[in-house]
Write a protein that binds this DNA or RNA. Structure first.
Lengths: 248, 248
DNA sequence: CGCACGTTTGATTGCAGTCAAGCTTTGTGG
DNA sequence: CCACAAAGCTTGACTGCAATCAAACGTGCG
């Protein structure tokens, strides 16, 4: 893990700002936030940002790359809780005697902006706008969690996989609109399985099925969705949710 | 839904205070909170507190009874997100153009304390202690959500059911310690199925299995766990989590 | 080149869903 | 207070989706 403290990029020109935590803060508030950002972190693929059981002291926004959050399970496997993409907020948890219930690991090379939690709290007390921004980010994460539960508990393997692809695709498109409807994709089939409660073998069969139907292609760490509408149908994603993700 | 505005119980003598959102606030802060609580609500079994799609304006703490939070699924069923027991906080979500992603319904007769969200925000800006209390409640809910995902995705039906029973039992014990290790239990087997992604028929078989092993009994809306240690083993609940729930 | 990691294929197994029907409890109205 | 309906629980037979086991194939990297 490498730490950068000099020549940090300006928040106002931040490429992920629009979709990031602090997206809808005004210029003045942005200065407050920037003052909190003490440094940037660089992680290589596979490196951990924190481990389950660590005491939290910093929160982070992903500047570039993908981070996976996971819990260790009873049988020595891992359950992936969520994927944090560019612009997203993670690690925010109050620290007195509490510890992280999950680990955070880099899925690609990752760059993060780092904020001391105690100072965030401090500033949030002074600026309602910041408080609202954080709470609103929290709400989004919570809703994603709810959708995750719903998906994992009630859908077939094909529906789950299609759903996951659609949501990752939509979230990635939001930060970096690509003309060729292709996004960088850092997950192995094992990762997908660990996120959805499936074996990588079954994920493989399902992904092949989706490919054969011409709905998507996925090679060279790059995912293309060819028929969004049909995928939404396959995933049994409801219209409201599809709209929230800007898919229709 | 009935609204009470007079002779509201004092927060300082609140039976659920210790485990409630505002449990670790000092007396002074408690007065601030009480001032926010404009009224109490009374719901009968089956009544809704709010529906998926409603705009949030109030947050609530459960004063007595059980509330179920659920999402409608693509196939017309429902996925239960969580159960809110006495002392818990729900409905807290920022309101500008956003709507609830789930519904809240009374599982028993329920009494709630009601707080305008905008005023909570206001006061949280003035009192860091309140901000921390809310954030800490948020963290707990989030962690429960993570555990839910892990349980639903990776456990067998028997493990999931045992796990759910243990957690509900522990949470209920926390507010009202019962000498006869028996808690009021408001769930049907259908509810359990909807929470865990199982059919009620399969839940039935599993519950019978646990009964036959002498691990628990459940009749007359009353649940007793006879062998906690063994249930923890069956549920594959890890020691750390069991400790968090005060089960060991 | 060879190893490690990820993907692919096939055969078999088993957990939980589905369908169908009977039983028990609860609660409501005559 | 009884009758009957509705809701919830229980049982059995059968089915199917996804796990498991086993092994081969690609591919990128040291």
């Amino acid at each position: 893990m490498q730490t950068l403290t000099k020549n940090l990029p300006k928040c106002q020109q931040c490429p992920v700002r629009a979709s990031a935590l602090f997206g809808h803060l005004n210029t003045e508030m942005l200065d407050v936030v920037r003052a909190l950002r003490t440094h940037q972190l660089v992680l290589e693929v596979g490196e951990h940002l924190y481990h389950q059981g660590d005491s939290p002291s910093k929160a982070y926004t992903v500047y570039e790359g993908w981070v996976v959050l996971y819990k260790n399970t009873h049988d020595g496997e891992r359950q992936i809780i969520r994927f944090a993409l560019a612009g997203e907020f993670l690690g925010y948890k109050l620290g007195n005697n509490t510890v992280y219930d999950h680990s955070a690991q880099a899925l690609s090379d990752v760059k993060l902006c780092s904020f001391p939690i105690s100072e965030i709290i401090n500033e949030a007390g002074k600026h309602t706008a910041l408080l609202l921004a954080i709470q609103s980010m929290n709400d989004t994460t919570m809703e994603r969690c709810h959708s995750s539960i719903t998906s994992i508990a009630n859908k077939t393997a094909e529906q789950k996989v299609a759903y996951l692809f659609l949501t990752l695709y939509a979230r990635e498109q939001e930060v970096r609109a690509t003309e060729d409807n292709c996004i960088p994709f850092y997950l192995t089939q094992e990762d997908i399985g660990d996120a959805l409660g499936l074996t990588s073998i079954h994920v493989n069969r399902v992904v092949q099925g989706l490919r054969r139907k011409g709905l998507l292609s996925c090679k060279n760490r790059c995912l293309s969705l060819h028929k969004i509408e049909e995928l939404i149908e396959v995933a049994k994603m409801d219209r409201f949710e599809a709209q929230q993700f800007n898919l229709i």
